[in-house]
Amino acid sequence: MIIPYGRHEIDNDDVNSVVEVLENKFLTQGDVVPEFEREVSSFCGAHHAIALNSATSALHLACRALEVKRGDIVWTSPISFVASANCAIYCGAKIDFVDINPNTNNIDPTLLKLKLIKAKKNNQLPKVVIPVHLCGLPCEMSTIWELSKEFNFQIIEDASHALGAEYNSTRIGNCKYSSITVFSFHPVKMITTGEGGMALTNSREIYERIKLLRSHGITKESKLMDKEKEGPWYYQQIELGYNYRMTDIQAALGISQLKKLEKFILNRSTLAERYIKNLKSSKFKTPLIPNNAKSSWHLFVVKISLNSFDEKRILFEYLIKNKIQVNLHYIPIYSHPFYKNFGFKKEDFPNSEKYYKEALTLPLFSNLSFLEQDKIITKLEKFSNK
């Protein structure tokens, strides 16, 4: 049996929650989505939450809510899924990247400041910066927040990996250091709704705008209309929006999963500690966790010291042959064919290039057994000894 790199965990409570909605009158646009939003905003400590059909949609509407448009510039990390950058392109903006810190694999605040100083001289400052909490490890948000005040940019936290993570003893998602935080509920994430995402904010204005945009730009609120209602049926489309809604079926699963989140994180943390303790070969560099942060351990990425990229390919093939599904999170965004058209140069991102050559994502999920994990560790050590 193959050990996957990630896997959801569904129990009878989850199934029963979904069945209850299926037997109800509303499968979508009922009461369950607002309940899920309240549960997540309360858990994280944010004022508002808007559930959406994916984190990609949440990132897109976050950019729209901050009025990102043609001619604007957005910066993010090159070591992320492409959605972290695509959201700016959707709005017609230009995208650029800030290299990572090799210890955390997140945006390097020092390099961010140097890039901001240069951009200010050239009148090319970003409108928005999107830090990515890679693998569930929070970025150095207080420093980025101070830079945002100095250089006048907005912050969207891409916390797709980081539900349940903590920074400075508070939960990611409270938006203390950002205008908007985005989560993902994809099946391999901390909790799942099948597909789904959520945007959190402390701004009532941003909340109302994202809520409007997720449902075609349609409103039934008189105060937003250009004339009086013609009747109780009346609505108006006041701008171009999208169908980015989450269903009540998905939200019911999310509510049930959220109740188990702390258990999931505890299990993942235990497994991460076992990897760190038992991967003894000097070829494997395990993650470092700063004192002021608590990772949600969405992913466990090791860096491997090998003689060549070909050796990494051989290691991948060796592990897959032994029914261990490893992965690589991520290929630098700027190296994809679509982004090559923008003229990015690899030499501008030396830490990201080194990361790509060394990184390997090992299986990590809440119900990974110690027996399965021991097999992974044994095969890695055996390969390294060769």
Results as ranks from 00 to 15, higher is better:
residue 240 L to S: 12
residue 298 H to P: 00
residue 101 N to M: 08
residue 314 I to K: 13
residue 224 L to H: 07
residue 87 C to E: 09
residue 361 T to L: 11
residue 382 K to H: 11
residue 223 K to T: 06
residue 230 E to W: 10
residue 258 L to N: 01
residue 244 Y to V: 06
residue 36 F to P: 00
residue 290 P to R: 12
residue 58 A to K: 08
residue 152 N to I: 11
residue 190 M to P: 00
residue 200 L to T: 08
residue 348 D to H: 13
residue 157 E to Q: 06
residue 377 I to C: 03
residue 24 N to C: 04
residue 195 E to R: 10
residue 232 P to I: 15
residue 274 R to L: 08
residue 243 N to Q: 09
residue 199 A to H: 06
residue 182 V to R: 05
residue 23 E to M: 02
residue 172 I to S: 01
residue 216 H to E: 10
residue 92 G to T: 13
residue 106 N to V: 15
residue 245 R to C: 03
residue 80 S to Y: 09
residue 131 P to E: 07
residue 55 A to V: 04
residue 83 A to Q: 12
residue 212 L to C: 02
residue 12 N to E: 14
residue 137 L to D: 07
residue 232 P to F: 11
residue 274 R to Q: 12
residue 122 N to C: 05
residue 282 S to D: 15
residue 43 F to P: 00
residue 173 G to Q: 03
residue 359 A to G: 05
residue 317 E to H: 09
residue 17 S to D: 02
residue 346 K to W: 05
residue 132 V to I: 14
residue 342 F to K: 01
residue 319 L to S: 07
residue 200 L to M: 07
residue 338 F to T: 10
residue 194 G to C: 05
residue 320 I to L: 09
residue 345 K to N: 04
residue 337 P to C: 02
residue 19 V to C: 01
residue 203 S to D: 07
residue 363 P to K: 14
residue 276 I to T: 15
residue 75 W to N: 02
residue 145 W to T: 09
residue 55 A to E: 15
residue 63 C to K: 02
residue 123 N to K: 11
residue 35 E to D: 06
residue 91 C to M: 13
residue 244 Y to H: 11
residue 249 I to G: 00
residue 125 L to I: 15
residue 225 M to R: 11
residue 317 E to Q: 13
residue 94 K to W: 08
residue 364 L to I: 15
residue 336 H to I: 05
residue 367 N to C: 12
residue 372 E to K: 10
residue 365 F to C: 03
residue 205 E to F: 02
residue 7 R to T: 03
residue 327 N to Y: 13
residue 143 T to Q: 14
residue 11 D to H: 07
residue 45 G to A: 02
residue 264 F to K: 12
residue 111 L to M: 15
residue 307 N to I: 09
residue 384 S to H: 08
residue 309 F to P: 06
residue 266 L to W: 09
residue 281 S to T: 13
residue 103 N to G: 13
residue 85 A to S: 15
residue 15 V to N: 08
residue 190 M to H: 04
residue 258 L to C: 03
residue 84 S to R: 00
residue 341 N to Q: 11
residue 38 R to K: 08
residue 18 V to F: 05
residue 28 T to N: 00
residue 194 G to S: 07
residue 63 C to D: 08
residue 247 T to K: 01
